[in-house]
Computed example of a mutant assay.
Amino acid sequence: MNATIIALLGYITWIVILLVALAIYRTSLVMNRKKAANSFKADGSDSPPLGHRLTRAQANCVESFAFIGGLMLLALATDSAVITNDLAYVLLIARLGQSVAHLISTSILAVQIRFAFFLVQVGICLYWIVQLATKFIG
Results as ranks from 00 to 15, higher is better:
Asn2Lys: 02
Thr4Asp: 10
Thr4Leu: 09
Ala7Met: 11
Leu8Tyr: 04
Leu9Ile: 14
Gly10Asp: 10
Gly10Trp: 12
Tyr11Thr: 02
Trp14Leu: 15
Ile17Lys: 13
Ile17Trp: 14
Leu18Thr: 02
Leu18Tyr: 04
Val20Gly: 04
Ile24Ser: 04
Tyr25Asn: 07
Tyr25Gln: 01
Tyr25Phe: 12
Tyr25Pro: 05
Arg26Leu: 02
Val30Ser: 04
Met31His: 13
Met31Leu: 14
Arg33Gln: 11
Arg33Ile: 04
Lys34Ile: 03
Lys34Gln: 12
Lys35Tyr: 13
Ala36Phe: 03
Ala37Tyr: 05
Phe40Val: 06
Lys41Asp: 10
Lys41Glu: 12
Ala42Pro: 03
Ala42Lys: 09
Ala42Phe: 09
Ala42Val: 08
Gly44Cys: 04
Ser45Pro: 02
Ser45Leu: 02
Ser47Arg: 06
Pro48Gln: 05
Pro48His: 01
Pro49Tyr: 04
Gly51Tyr: 06
Leu54Met: 12
Ala57Pro: 10
Gln58Asn: 09
Asn60Met: 02
Val62Phe: 15
Phe65Ala: 00
Phe65Ser: 00
Phe65Pro: 00
Ala66Phe: 14
Ile68Arg: 08
Gly69Arg: 03
Gly70Val: 10
Gly70Tyr: 07
Leu71Cys: 07
Met72Leu: 15
Leu73Lys: 04
Ala75Phe: 01
Ala77Asp: 10
Ala77Gly: 14
Thr78Ser: 08
Thr78Val: 03
Asp79Glu: 15
Ser80Lys: 07
Val82Lys: 07
Thr84Asn: 09
Thr84Ala: 12
Leu87Val: 11
Leu87Phe: 12
Ala88Tyr: 06
Ala88Ile: 05
Tyr89Cys: 08
Val90Leu: 14
Leu91Thr: 03
Leu92Tyr: 06
Arg95Cys: 08
Leu96Phe: 10
Leu96His: 02
Leu96Ser: 04
Leu96Pro: 01
Ser99Ile: 12
Ala101Met: 11
Ala101His: 06
Ala101Tyr: 08
His102Glu: 00
His102Ile: 01
His102Tyr: 09
Leu103Phe: 06
Leu103Lys: 06
Ser105Trp: 09
Leu109Cys: 09
Ala110Pro: 00
Gln112Pro: 03
Arg114Pro: 01
Ala116His: 05
Ala116Val: 11
Ala116Gly: 11
Phe117Ala: 11
Phe117Lys: 02
Phe118Cys: 07
Leu119Met: 15
Leu119Tyr: 13
Val120Asn: 00
Val120Glu: 03
Val120Tyr: 02
Gln121Trp: 06
Gly123Trp: 09
Leu126Thr: 12
Leu126Pro: 11
Trp128Glu: 04
Val130Leu: 15
Val130Trp: 15
Gln131Phe: 07
Gln131Thr: 11
Gln131His: 10
Ala133Ser: 10
Ala133Phe: 08
Thr134Pro: 01
Lys135His: 13
Ile137His: 12
Ile137Asp: 08
Ile137Pro: 06
Gly138Ser: 02
